[in-house]
Design a protein around this nucleic acid. Structure first.
Lengths: 220, 220
DNA sequence: CGGAATCCTCTTCGATACTG
DNA sequence: CAGTATCGAAGAGGATTCCG
């Protein structure tokens, strides 16, 4: 049923599992925590219910994710990465880093999600700049599109949903975030122009440094 | 013409380029140096000429590879990675590392190439063990399947084809290599049983340590 | 409503045959 | 040797329906 390259090669074996369309993007979503089927649909615009459920089944068979029913009163079914699945984080990060180089600025018809944007930052993130910093930062573009990231012990963790007690919370339109984080708009101007900030400017400055100035060429 | 995820996401952008079937395996082959069309066919059993030429065109369009005509008397057309293409090395390595965990032992119908085997070693390679070692090692399973790797300044480079002046040269059947490098067969026994060695046992021991003992579970 | 199977169309893949 | 052309098979995308 499932197609294999039939090669005794570690890369080919990895691609046998995560090489088909949408699969690694499903993993990307789950790297930010457990999700329900509908959440995944939301984070994977264009996928179609049949394909998502097929991918989820394949990933379960491969031991990359697990299906779990949350305890009452939630009671909903969620999918989450296994340890094996979490090990894909490094591979995803390297690919993200590579893709970042030719990301460019968003076009009108491209979808945007805060957790993807944070992943761009994670790819650009310079460990040495952060030192032994601990920090939580939330970002949102709408009621439904909220994520945050946490830095602790030099690790950068993306989490879907709002943060409990963030050091910094930012809200704005996708383009506002991009302008702010690429330095196209200085912090004060960005705040005047559309970004809502909860926290102080110093913390924002720290976050901007953590991301490193995103360099997105127009020509990509 | 080409399909895109349409997401403003670095990972999705990367997958727009290298996410389709065979693409990353083409890159894998080229990471070991320039290749002709026929060489690539040989290193990608099962691909079909139409798909290979389509992939090569896509990768050129994406700036990942370049087509070049070798100077006389060779005069043959080769494909090689651009700098941008070489940057995929890290991403490929991480995926290889991940795939290695579930590689297992080869089945009867799986293809084998020496450069894939070396890539397994590269994924398992422990930098610290090597120190400031410099070393070249060639491996072959047949007249046509020969590759070598070079370690220098802590970098591990795979190269298709024979080495000029290797510190060690090994020849044998695929299974012989696996038995030797997983410790299933001690060096002396392996040499008695099918591996031909050119170089001394000490160097072989060093190479085995560089690879780290490959751990391939039967059950994968 | 969340989760998934079904149906239909379109694209991509794989294998072979064929050409410069 | 280096590809293009062709065609049946498999996979993807979208909408709709079904089940709990």
């Amino acid at each position: 049923m499932k197609r294999s390259y039939g090669q005794y090669c570690a890369l080919a074996k990895a691609l046998d599992v995560v090489g088909s369309r949408w699969t690694l993007l499903v993993v990307r979503e789950l790297l930010a925590g457990p999700r329900r089927f509908g959440d995944l649909m939301n984070g994977l615009p264009g996928i179609g219910t049949n394909l998502l459920s097929e991918r989820l089944r394949e990933l379960q068979d491969a031991g990359v994710i697990e299906k779990r029913v949350l305890p009452p009163p939630a009671g909903s079914t969620v999918y989450e990465l296994t340890d094996r699945g979490r090990e894909l984080g490094n591979a995803a990060l390297q690919l993200t880093r590579w893709g970042y180089e030719s990301l460019g600025l968003p076009t009108k018809d491209e979808e945007f999600r805060v957790n993807w944007f944070i992943a761009i930052g994670q790819a650009a993130y310079q460990r040495q700049a952060a030192g032994d910093l601990s920090l939580t930062c939330e970002m949102r573009t709408s009621e439904t599109d909220v994520s945050h990231f946490r830095i602790e012990d030099g690790k950068f963790q993306i989490v879907q949903g709002p943060a409990r007690d963030p050091d910094l919370a930012l809200a704005g339109a996708p383009r506002d975030f991009i302008d702010l984080f690429t330095g196209r708009l200085p912090p004060k101007k960005a705040i005047a122009n559309g970004i809502a900030l909860n926290g102080d400017l110093d913390t924002l400055q720290t976050v901007l440094e953590i991301f490193g100035l995103l360099e997105l060429s127009e020509t990509a």
